[in-house]
Design a protein around this nucleic acid. Structure first.
Lengths: 348, 348
DNA sequence: TCCCGAAGTTCGATTTAAATG
DNA sequence: GCATTTAAATCGAACTTCGGG
């Protein structure tokens, strides 16, 4: 390995001067161009790469940001990660991504590993998390800038970025209503998932505003589960159950796309065609939604934007820490967007 | 931050002794239990966590492994990553995951960043890579244990893990043939993709063995593209084109699942139902395949196993390096598995 | 005082060599 | 020589301080 001393020897200057030149430190302005050229030449010739361990040990900086995802296989998160990645890439930070797989033990272990590596900030993608308040405690006391994506927090030391669930759900029913649907079935999210309540609030709020009647027999809840793809199966089953009750409905609003896929399967098995005999709308707009046939109408979460926003929040936080400023946590709520595809249409 | 000297002071011993005890170094066997207890107690009391930068600087080890993915949004890779992650987690290595986004510049920059962080090994998930031979050169000269997933290499310094494409394709046609299909359309992969040739070879090999006739008019190629999801659209278009030629076919074998989704869309638009009027089979078995309606019959790549295998290869490589053994690159080819679902059935 | 460069200290842990009884 | 402990050197870069022109 070639060290700064090797460059010093090769160029004929001292290690100090080499350091000053290569880092373009304040003192570098006094150093004549000729010296700089010689040093830079020597560095290039030897293929010198500074040892980050030494550098970080001294500077107490890692240029690294920890990213924890609760479930990487959830299609929701890959685009969020893209957003994070692109922002950090520009800022020359390296993300260290860990997949917690919804296991508490992994969360704690990875958090330790990240702190051990002196990440300068933390971004947590809390998709499908069944909240553990005490986990947040671990985070708070670490006192490095932290942003949480997908989980609303009142917290004033941890920032958060979420989608406006209420608005999204409102928009979804509104879309079905505008198409002429009046008998709508609902599969709500699991009670313990923080997204569930505001989405349902959006539905109720629309229903109240426009006088849409909500039939309690056509409202069911997803059970809890640690696996985000399990809602496919439970969506399937719940839809099957609702069909068995013979209560007619012309449209179904699913908690998320995965659930919607399950519903479509059940409708199809029952001989009902989507959208001809029943419209279906999802939430999230995961990649698969535009790939399936028929493509799914859904509420798109601005995932890349959410990732980018979280990244810029923590980058700002890092600057604040460096400048010893105090920066309060911020809480952002981004608007979703209706993606109209072929799984919804007017009832016949 | 609490350092080893703080622990030394607290326990009443020197930093040396603390280090020996906490690392359970060879010399620790001379140290009386009482001393160990005191030191461990002090460390725990102070919440001592060794500084990894200092440790790595001295030991020249990072306990870190670089993982480069060519496109994270490709659903193929998340399960591969799970496999890698789980293996490394057990071995107490931290993966640093980078998403190259199929950009050469990013590849190089991330490779530098990883090498700067002294990753002890490298795993490259080369899904949907349009090979750059010279990129491999960069890797070779870095001479750290490297494994490539999804790209066959003759190389003897870089290991590789791939799926048996020929066998997979053979199995796929065999499945269609067994169902009674004789007029089969094929959408082959892009010429420059290394998976394309062996898959086609598998088809030809089956055709020859069983006397299946391959109609050149029903064989088309995907164009090149940097975006793995683009094959949805091109699959759609190519299928549409084939339908226009009016050459009858009762089954279609797509290069991969994404292409198959495009085909299904085109068939559906043309009023042909899958599988009633045309069977469709994919390759990969991405998550969406079992979620769509009808669920897609496909050739499943053992993604998690491939990831785990690559991880164990490089871990073995690290041990070899530590023991100054020489370890030749290994090349593994894993068997895929036929996943029969509802998109294929006997022709009427 | 301004300019240029270097010696020496520091970061925190590991390890070698050596000093105790 | 043995068990027990430690001072000092080391890893590589960055920064503080200082000296000479």
């Amino acid at each position: 390995m070639v060290t700064i001393r090797d460059v010093a020897k090769e160029s004929g200057f001292s290690a100090t001067t080499v350091s000053i030149v290569l880092n373009n430190a304040p003192l570098a302005r006094y150093i004549p161009i000729a010296t700089k050229k010689r040093i830079e030449g020597a560095a290039k010739k030897l293929g010198y790469r500074p040892n980050l361990f030494a550098r970080s040990l001294r500077s107490r900086r890692s240029h690294t940001i920890g990213v924890m995802v609760f479930d990487m296989t959830d299609p929701f998160c890959t685009l969020v990660l893209r957003g994070i990645e692109n922002s950090l890439y520009q800022a020359s930070y390296l993300p260290i991504l860990t997949d917690v797989q919804n296991e508490r033990a992994r969360f704690e272990r990875y958090l330790e590993m990240l702190l051990d590596r002196r990440v300068e900030a933390l971004i947590v993608v809390a998709n499908w998390l069944f909240v553990n308040i005490d986990v947040l405690g671990d985070l708070e006391k670490s006192n490095i800038p932290t942003a949480m994506i997908g989980l609303e927090l009142k917290n004033d030391s941890i920032s958060s970025v979420i989608v406006d669930n209420e608005l999204g759900a409102y928009t979804a029913v509104e879309h079905l209503y505008a198409l002429g649907h009046r008998k709508i079935a609902f599969i709500r999210g699991p009670r313990t998932l923080t997204d569930s309540a505001p989405r349902w609030k959006g539905v109720r709020s629309f229903a109240k505003a426009r006088g849409l009647e909500l039939d309690p027999h056509l409202i069911v809840d997803l059970p809890e589960s640690r696996d985000p793809t399990s809602s496919f199966e439970t969506g399937y089953k719940l839809t099957e159950d609702m069909l068995k009750t013979k209560r007619p409905f012309t449209a179904l609003m699913a908690f998320d796309d995965m659930t919607a896929f399950g519903s479509i399967r059940a409708l199809s098995k029952a001989g009902l065609r989507v959208p001809e005999q029943c419209s279906v709308i999802g939430f999230d707009d995961v990649a698969a939604s535009s790939l399936c046939t028929p493509p799914l109408t859904s509420i798109r979460q601005p995932m890349a934007a959410m990732g980018a926003m979280a990244a810029s929040i923590v980058l700002e936080g890092i600057n604040a820490v460096l400048e010893k400023r105090d920066l309060p946590a911020v809480h952002r709520k981004l608007a979703p967007e209706l993606a109209v595809r072929d799984s919804t249409r007017s009832p016949v």
